[in-house]
Design a protein around this nucleic acid. Structure first.
Lengths: 232, 232
DNA sequence: GACATAGTCTATCGACCGATATACATCCAC
DNA sequence: GTGGATGTATATCGGTCGATAGACTATGTC
């Protein structure tokens, strides 16, 4: 194996940059709909209108292409969540932050999580690939997990810990954070879609889901009397 | 194609019943961990300690074997949910059923849903296969969906419709039902597990999750003022 | 115009896939 | 016991997979 990944040295002509980007965009789509194993390099090449060896040429291997697709998604996730992450971090650092402010930030986190997985460009592909990442066992997929944990799960967990007065490494707190996030992640699965005929996520539906999750979150953290050691 | 599926006629000897069951149990395990495409018939045969053609002999094809696995899961689902389904149906048929009673039934539905996907025998395999069913596109998988819709989603939807005073075919009501169920389904995905080292669903964790979901559900339907036409 | 690099092409490799032909073993009915 | 049904074994088929060899073209530098 000589030619692992074609990194274009600066100053070198990059005629193939178009081709490379076309392969990457097509790959996101196909990996999402077919899965890593299900997507064949021949299918990838045909849909991207390139030859079969072009994939090896630009990305070293099928796995290299997949990792490149994952990197582009992770990059998108970080760009989407970064501003809110900073606000949450600042609020948590200040011990005087009010309970209502923390609760409002939690609602905003979940709202941003909804628009992350259900909105934006290439919605369908990212949504499907995110859903697959929970099931498949493909090289590099743990990076996608790690990204979601760092930018969504961890901030939510920290906020909930403060809201409930429990330690952040508490099992119950972790499970509660996951349960709340589950209200969002369920809409990544196609089973959640075909209850209705059109089965698409229009901006209107995204808005309704965001409203419902907010309503639920507010109800939960305003109603329950926390600070109690155990649950039931 | 002559020998599609070996259905043993009554009165005929069934020496191979042991073999058949062994293949079926192994198949559930392997299909769950590897996926339909990922599981090869050779792997299946080796792990079940039978020859390669035994799969075709007993189940007609790899697809036939997969459908048989799905049927066994669906059967388990129906057996698990049937009693509660009846109680829900009875409560809904009676217009005088109190709001608290309906809410209690909704909590019980979600509790049963938790123990369905996280408890019982062959937990891990059923959990994984359920998660895969949301992503993969394998023949027969829609039956598993259909089963979940009929025995979990539909009753929850009907209860929520009554609790919120909205029609059951309402989009917002459907999305709310899914959001509530998402609190449970998220634990089917392996991403929800490896936040902690052991990553297993001990009975204690199942109990905690059931408690959290109940707490959330009660808070949501006691706090929010429904009967209002719109949400925000 | 000679040469190296960048990028694209056809053809093909070895591995593995699901399925089956076919022979053989085992068991029950009569 | 003998014939048909039931179950198990080996060997192999045609097909698809990811990857690569190697020839070809385009582009830029000197």
């Amino acid at each position: 194996m000589v030619h692992v990944i074609a990194r274009h040295r600066p100053g070198t002509q990059a005629r193939g940059e178009d081709t490379r980007r076309r392969i990457l965009e097509t790959a996101l789509e196909i990996f999402a709909t077919e899965g890593y194993e299900g997507a064949s390099t021949r299918q990838l090449a045909e849909r991207a209108d390139v030859n079969l060896p072009a994939i090896q040429y630009y990305f070293g291997s099928k796995e290299g292409l997949f990792r490149a697709v994952l990197e582009s998604i992770i990059e998108h996730t970080e760009r989407h969540m970064a501003p809110l992450d900073l606000r949450v971090k600042a609020a948590l650092a200040d011990p005087g932050t009010s309970r209502e402010k923390l609760l409002e930030l939690l609602c905003e986190m979940l709202k941003a999580f909804v628009s992350l997985v259900l909105g934006g460009t290439q919605i369908e592909s990212r949504r499907l690939l995110f859903a697959r990442s929970e099931v498949e066992d493909t090289p590099g997929l743990e990076q996608l997990h790690e990204s979601g944990k760092r930018h969504v799960f961890a901030p939510c967990l920290a906020l909930i810990a403060r809201l409930t007065g429990r330690p952040a490494d508490d099992l119950e707190t972790e499970l509660r954070a996951l349960a709340l996030m589950g209200q969002v992640t369920i809409f990544c699965h196609k089973g959640a879609l075909d209850t209705r005929a059109p089965a698409e996520f229009t901006p209107e539906r995204v808005r309704i889901i965001q409203g419902l999750v907010r309503e639920h979150t507010l109800a939960i953290f305003r109603a329950v009397s926390f600070k109690a050691a155990s649950l039931q």
